[in-house]
Design a protein around this nucleic acid. Structure first.
Lengths: 193, 193
DNA sequence: GACATTTTGTATCAATCGATACATAATGTC
DNA sequence: GACATTATGTATCGATTGATACAAAATGTC
């Protein structure tokens, strides 16, 4: 019917994720994007729309393949309390080994673009709610199994863990020190015991 | 000796803080700055250097008049445990009432510019350390007075509170809901009881 | 009041921004 | 192979970016 695309959309989108993740939305130019994606500007606009639409697609792909995949993997392979602990542990590990200090694409976006973009803001808020929901149902399940004391508010602890997660990610971008990040997490995780 | 400046440096710097606070570093143009500061571009460059130097001065002034002033005020007027509680409470109050969702200029900067600017990165890291130090010495003092259980690590709880502070500030930019932010803070503050 | 010094306002610099016009190339359909 | 349709490459659009050149204006010193 028509000339086929010569590049792989998903592969190019991965490159776009790298750009936006590393530099943020404003500091990334369309030329940066096109270069790193290995395509021309017209191909970029033809395939993904404009810069903003590309950002949305990049963020959505990142969330599906990163945050959401991690939750599914841990929830399927570990008992609930361990899944929560491991989630936080993996975030710390990633943060300490993040030599470029990219942090988390979702959390970077929550700070940079959410307040200025209503549509993206609710997308991001929804994804943060998914993380809170993971913590909440894990704690609830652990409490049902007698693995976490039942006199503690699962809702509040889930929210604390969400806050701790965001805090660790932000802190790591200016002070990526293991002792500090583990210090943040330790008293919060101790509430599960 | 020479022609005197026709505007107040500090007042104009306050306007620059508003710009950078609201939009971040990259998204704020020199024209935005000059307009809001009520001066011309040459006056801006003549007085503050370039855009980057202006940002540093704006951030430093913000920190002296906001974060650092709050710590001093609370520490001078309240017993240590109450000072910590009040600090967190005030942050939540500010976040909930922050209709423009500006968050905290320091924390916004920790995420946007710290990883890309070594000099600013260490400035920011130092200021975050000051906040942690405030939590730490408050908890230590409260423990000495028997106001906080002594079997808890003051270092870890101080770090948790720092993480919670950052988490609340980030969360508030996409979900400024009181119940959520208070839920994050409640289990952390409960560790002081 | 002449001079040195600094600030201010106008006007503009080259570079880069996001985004496209246009012609050419590559496909499936008939 | 003619045609419709979409992708690609070149070349560039007007707008905006950070930053200045330059001359006029305002001060203290002498």
């Amino acid at each position: 019917m028509a000339r086929p695309r010569e590049f792989d959309e998903a592969t190019a989108l991965e490159a776009a994720i790298e750009c936006f993740w590393h530099r943020g939305y404003e500091a990334t130019s369309v030329r940066d994007l096109a270069d790193k994606m290995g395509i021309s500007a017209p191909s970029l606009y033809n395939t993904y729309g404009d810069k903003h639409a590309l950002f949305v697609q990049a963020l959505e792909r990142y969330l599906d393949h990163s945050t959401r995949a991690r939750i599914t993997r841990l929830e399927d392979s570990l008992p609930p309390k361990q899944a929560v602990r491991r989630f936080i542990d993996e975030i710390i590990e990633r943060s300490v080994n993040d030599r470029e200090r990219r942090g988390c694409f979702l959390i970077n976006s929550a700070l940079e673009v959410a307040p200025h973009d209503k549509r993206l803001g609710s997308l991001i808020a929804g994804r943060l709610a998914e993380i809170e929901a993971f913590f909440y149902r894990s704690i609830k399940a652990a409490q049902a199994e007698g693995d976490v004391p039942k006199d503690r508010s699962a809702r509040d602890i889930a929210r604390l863990l969400l806050g701790v997660l965001l805090g660790i990610r932000v802190l790591a971008r200016s002070k990526p020190e293991r002792a500090l990040l583990e210090g943040v997490a330790r008293p919060a995780l101790a509430l599960l015991e």
